[in-house]
Design a protein around this nucleic acid. Structure first.
Lengths: 338, 338
DNA sequence: CTGTTAGCGCCTTCAG
DNA sequence: CTGAAGGCGCTAACAG
């Protein structure tokens, strides 16, 4: 039988209330007796029972606010799925979750959402932070107030946070390099189409790829890295144009709107062997029917799930999370999913 | 606020005890009122609070027995790690776990362990079942008694179980075939060394590989599939001999003792490009320093973790698990881990 | 067949 | 500064 605060109270000769105050540093207690109680707790190998605690703190109505940086896209829809699953799992603990979408990349609006969440009584925030002074300043403030903020699927330079959850972008760039070499037999030419470098993660991924392919003389030749815009039509045109302009290129690494990329590759008029990042439906279909050779996934669902569970563990077990939680990338070929 | 049994009791005009009896089919209740209560519960969208339930059932001292089929190996040490992690997470729920090793593949002993666990008061069993009448008969009995038994990392033909957790062996064979094709540029010759086909999973994996590579004319040529024994020295000799006997073979797929395989490949005196299953330390090292081109993992830790959590969810939420839970295989290259 | 009540372990008033 | 008591939602033992 694990020891309970009752046990501790008995050997310390005090009441459970006093034990509770001591163990949770609630003050209103004589320092000596607090010390003594803590000593006894340690000796008795006490650990607070999270189930009982959860039941008791349920009337605190703990709230988590999730603040995104866009309204919808394939990636974040998956993230939200993970968040919803976590919500499902922790609802019995009396913790509720509110998700706020945000006009795409609008820092002013995101700031409003942050402030709204707080005045609404949120006890923690999960955010996909926009890289803008407006936001970063506010996040710094919150950090100083020890208000728990978790960065989700999105890095931010030098802004401290309670914890940050994402894939290892640099590594995922290197993995892509390796896959391209595998597919090409270490020869030939490739183009890489990657999303906006204004997001730090994308930049890291790009660096990973470049570093990896530049590190040795042999191997596939990375002709150019092209930055995409997040606008379907523009990106389609860009990809098509680049492919037509480099008829010697046979290999493509692509991260962006799957539809645009697939269509452009199809329309360029020759056989292209490609690796796609992420796993929206069109990507899955293309992988299964062979238009794509492989995909690199960062499991957005797991990232969303983890962001909530990290806070959950903090609330129920006082578990301070790692500053940076990296979700491993997954390599997927047709045979993994067909 | 979620509805509680108290709420239901109030609108039904009965006591919480009666509601409890109705909702959990405990009998000793007039059928009509049970019906009525269930109806009201449905209307009020009631779901039992698992936290409160867990706290209440804690004095039942729920016990899970884990019965292995061997004492130790790399794979099951990982499985056990996952089990321990689950144990850690659910200990506050008052559920305890006992792990029993077993003399390697000794069915008589494993049967004893099963019976011991039950007479010891276990409420469920997680087992890596040995494929032997002695065991399968007992497992059938238990299944008929509705005693929850979960098969772990190990398939068994036509023996019903509460749930079975493993990787998708057939698929993992296909994935290997694909990787070998990738590495070889769809040409050349390979050998496959796979573990004892007496275990159904290994057989499935072999079939997956064979079916995949035989399905088309082009692609790497699978010269032979060799069955390993699980004895280090024997396997070393087998691998070495086969490699020396087939000097045209440049590619190897290997599943077995990593040490034996790596040594034999090294000693065969020529450059071999290989894919290994599973991820014991020697495999990791070999992957990092380039002796192995890729690995296919089945995440044993997750399998162990899941086996416990599945029972946990059953105990705390009455959640009946899927009959077969498949943990996806993971493709790993150097760049994923270095 | 049904109601009452005492827990499960912890937190939180509210008196003292 | 400390103790007592009630409550979180559910289960189970005991009366009736």
């Amino acid at each position: 039988m694990p020891t309970t605060i009752k046990d501790i109270a008995k050997v310390a000769g005090v009441s459970v209330g006093t034990v509770d105050r001591a163990l949770n540093n609630r003050g209103r207690i004589k320092p000596e007796v607090a010390e003594n109680i803590k000593k006894i707790a340690a000796e008795l190998n006490y650990r607070t029972n999270t189930v009982a605690k959860s039941l008791a703190i349920r009337n605190k109505n703990l709230k988590i606010a999730v603040v995104l940086h866009i309204q919808h896209n394939d990636f974040y829809d998956e993230v939200i799925k993970g968040i919803k699953q976590a919500e499902e799992e922790i609802q019995d603990f009396g913790i509720s979750i509110d998700i706020f979408g945000c006009p795409d990349f609008n820092a002013v609006e995101q700031l409003k959402l942050i402030n709204h969440a707080i005045s609404d009584g949120a006890h923690a925030i999960v955010i996909a932070p926009i890289n803008d002074q407006l936001i970063t300043n506010r996040l710094k403030e919150l950090n100083e107030l020890s208000f728990p903020v978790i960065f989700l699927a999105n890095l931010l330079h030098e802004i401290p946070s309670f914890s940050s959850i994402s894939c290892d972008y640099y590594r995922s760039g290197r993995i892509a390099g390796r896959l391209m070499n595998l597919l090409s037999g270490n020869k030939g030419q490739m183009l890489a189409f990657l999303p906006s470098f204004s997001m730090l993660g994308n930049q890291k991924r790009m660096e990973g790829l470049r570093d990896y392919l530049n590190q040795s003389e042999q191997g596939i030749q990375l002709k150019e890295i092209i930055e995409l815009t997040n606008d379907n039509l523009t990106d389609y045109c860009t990809v098509l144009e680049k492919l037509k302009g480099s008829p010697s290129v046979k290999y493509v690494l692509y991260c962006g709107s799957a539809k645009a990329g697939l269509q452009a590759i199809k329309d360029c008029g020759r056989k292209i062997i490609s690796v796609f990042y992420d796993f929206a439906l069109p990507t899955q279909e293309a992988l299964i029917d062979g238009r794509i050779a492989a995909a690199i996934l960062q499991d957005p669902e797991i990232q969303g799930y983890q962001s909530i569970m990290t806070l959950f563990n903090f609330f129920t077990s006082n578990k301070i999370p790692e500053k940076q939680i990296l979700i491993p990338s997954r390599i997927v070929v047709k045979e993994c999913v067909d």
